[in-house]
Computed example of a mutant assay.
Amino acid sequence: MTFIYLASQSPRRLQLLEQWGVRCELLLPDAGEDTESLEAALPGEAPAAYVTRVTGLKLQAALARLRQRGLPPAPVLCADTTVALGRRILAKPEDAADAARMLAALSGQRHRVLTAVAVGKPRARAAQQWSALSTSWVTFEALRPAQIRAYVQTGEPMGKAGAYAIQGRAALWASHISGSYSGIMGLPAFETAQVLGAAGVQLI
């Protein structure tokens, strides 16, 4: 394949793919598409089930978008990231106060960062699909209220699962990381290579 479609508005995912030598074309939603509703958690849903399901829904929407626009066929990549404290899902904060609450909950805690990736390959009938899940662990030092306030004021937590970006200032709080650093950023290198390889896209 000469290129893939990336159905994500995350600049971090695009940056990572470009670093890995993958040529991407963005396949973003139309203005009228309700993409936020896809990320709503079901009652009692476990974090791993949630992030896998949401990624699958994003892939279905992206494949439909590809067909509707009559674009040239190519593999479509989707991903979704969530932060989990036990079974509690910490999605993107609704506002600054919500971000502060999430960060206070993560203070001094070991938590999971789960990123699901999925690739769909358009076909005449049903598209072929492959998916994988990356689970990493992050431990934050105990945070002072003043630290949380200062971080929230930077605006960095907004639009980020768990209200932080590991590639940003929050890295200064991470005393221990286990797993995939790129997965914590939003696109796990190993799992992405596996699903793209299954779709015929070799990264190396």
Rank of each mutant, 00 (worst) to 15 (best):
residue 80 D to Q: 10
residue 170 A to F: 10
residue 59 L to C: 02
residue 84 A to N: 03
residue 91 A to C: 00
residue 203 L to F: 08
residue 58 K to D: 09
residue 31 A to T: 04
residue 144 R to V: 02
residue 182 S to N: 01
residue 31 A to G: 12
residue 10 S to V: 12
residue 186 G to W: 02
residue 29 P to D: 12
residue 1 M to V: 14
residue 196 L to F: 05
residue 199 A to R: 03
residue 108 G to V: 07
residue 162 G to H: 05
residue 52 T to L: 12
residue 71 L to K: 10
residue 87 R to E: 15
residue 165 A to N: 05
residue 27 L to I: 00
residue 51 V to Y: 09
residue 160 K to H: 08
residue 111 H to M: 05
residue 86 G to M: 10
residue 97 A to T: 05
residue 83 V to D: 05
residue 176 H to E: 15
residue 157 P to M: 06
residue 161 A to F: 05
residue 43 P to L: 10
residue 91 A to H: 07
residue 166 I to P: 01
residue 165 A to S: 13
residue 54 V to Y: 04
residue 186 G to P: 07
residue 54 V to M: 04
residue 14 L to G: 15
residue 135 T to K: 00
residue 162 G to I: 03
residue 72 P to N: 12
residue 46 A to R: 14
residue 197 G to W: 03
residue 178 S to V: 14
residue 70 G to A: 13
residue 30 D to E: 15
residue 10 S to W: 11
residue 110 R to I: 00
residue 37 S to A: 15
residue 161 A to L: 07
residue 14 L to P: 00
residue 87 R to N: 14
residue 83 V to N: 05
residue 46 A to G: 02
residue 162 G to L: 07
residue 131 S to C: 11
residue 157 P to Y: 06
residue 20 W to C: 13
residue 76 V to W: 04
residue 147 Q to M: 13
residue 107 S to M: 09
residue 105 A to L: 15
residue 126 A to M: 02
residue 108 G to W: 06
residue 74 A to W: 08
residue 5 Y to Q: 03
residue 99 A to F: 06
residue 19 Q to C: 03
residue 104 A to W: 03
residue 23 R to W: 00
residue 118 A to I: 08
residue 100 A to C: 08
residue 113 V to K: 04
residue 97 A to L: 09
residue 154 T to W: 08
residue 140 F to M: 11
